[in-house]
């Protein structure tokens, strides 16, 4: 089974996670830039983070046989801090990098005017740089936030079919599907979606344009949730082809809109020859 996790924050995860992900079938992932739990106070802190997503993290991933790409943006939460907004001016030089496959995570957090500005500006950047956009839907007041997000996408120069609406659930999937955008679902141990609810959504809405991710980060989360959804799908009677579509072909098609996916990472030597030559961190 081949798995593409289209949303996971590996910066917050250990090499044990990489190893377990590879063992469970993960061969590619996308790490969207987001906040780090501790709010940043300067643009330079973002640039170091972006550099890590374009340098160190793909290097770590490759050692475990996993292709790493990223999405870059000023996230909605920190878009509210005027000390951080200069990031928007520097983004263009990052968006041309080989490893960047979308603008993201953008979207709403508290639905403030500052978030309106950042969302619209970054949808425009995505259109200009021929990149799709990865849009996070808010945790609080989710349905209102989703509808407002869809309106802003409609007013932008970016085709809704080049947009992934993420963190969807039973209450938001219908509106999101009608917008023509791609549908992302994050599977979490306690919050967001779980495996069985995900299977029900797939039963009701089908597998078209649906992406499933672990969104694992520094909070209570599980980087193997993608595999657990695959297993739950098979147990519920979905075919292996359905699983491959949701957990590989759909994310490849969506992020492939960037023209920048490079999925040919060699299998890790550590797992093949019983040693770890590229320690890197010793």
């Amino acid at each position: 089974m081949r798995i593409f996790d289209p949303h996971i924050h590996m910066t917050s995860r250990t090499t044990d996670d990489y190893q377990a992900m590879y063992a469970s079938g993960v061969r590619a992932l996308v790490e969207p830039s987001f906040w780090l739990g501790q709010p940043r106070t300067s643009p330079a802190s973002f640039y170091d983070y972006f550099d890590a997503l374009l340098g160190w993290e793909p290097f770590r991933a490759a050692q475990y046989g996993i292709a790493h790409h990223c999405t870059l943006a000023l996230n909605p939460k920190e878009a509210n801090d005027p000390r951080c907004t200069p990031v928007l001016e520097e983004l263009p030089r990052y968006l041309v990098k080989d490893g960047v496959v979308a603008v993201g995570e953008i979207g709403y957090d508290s639905m403030t005017p500052a978030e309106d500005v950042a969302l619209a500006a970054q949808l425009q950047l995505a259109a200009e740089y021929a990149l799709p956009a990865m849009v996070h839907t808010p945790h609080r007041d989710k349905l209102t936030g989703l509808r407002r997000t869809i309106d802003v996408v409609r007013e932008s120069n970016l085709d809704p079919e080049h947009v992934l609406l993420d963190h969807l659930n039973e209450t938001t999937v219908k509106d999101a599907a009608e917008s023509g955008s791609w549908l992302g679902f994050s599977i979490y141990p306690d919050t967001k979606m779980d495996e069985d609810r995900m299977v029900s959504v797939l039963r009701d809405h089908g597998t078209d344009r649906v992406l499933v991710n672990s969104a694992a980060d520094w909070g209570k989360s599980d980087p193997l949730k993608t595999r657990k959804v695959a297993d739950a799908m098979l147990a519920a009677g979905f075919s292996e082809d359905d699983v491959d579509k949701v957990l590989w072909r759909n994310p490849v098609e969506f992020y492939g809109l960037s023209g920048r996916l490079q999925l040919d990472v060699p299998a890790p030597q550590a797992l093949h020859e019983g040693n770890s030559i590229l320690r890197g961190g010793e």
């Binding site: 263009p92 030089r93 041309v96 990098k97 080989d98 023209g259 920048r260 490079q262």
Partner: peptide
């Protein structure tokens, strides 16, 4: 940003890593 510098960044995806 001079055009060639954009090419410098994009070389991998156009010519192969």
């Amino acid at each position: 940003v001079p055009k060639w510098e954009l090419r410098f960044a994009a070389a991998g995806r156009h010519c192969g890593q």
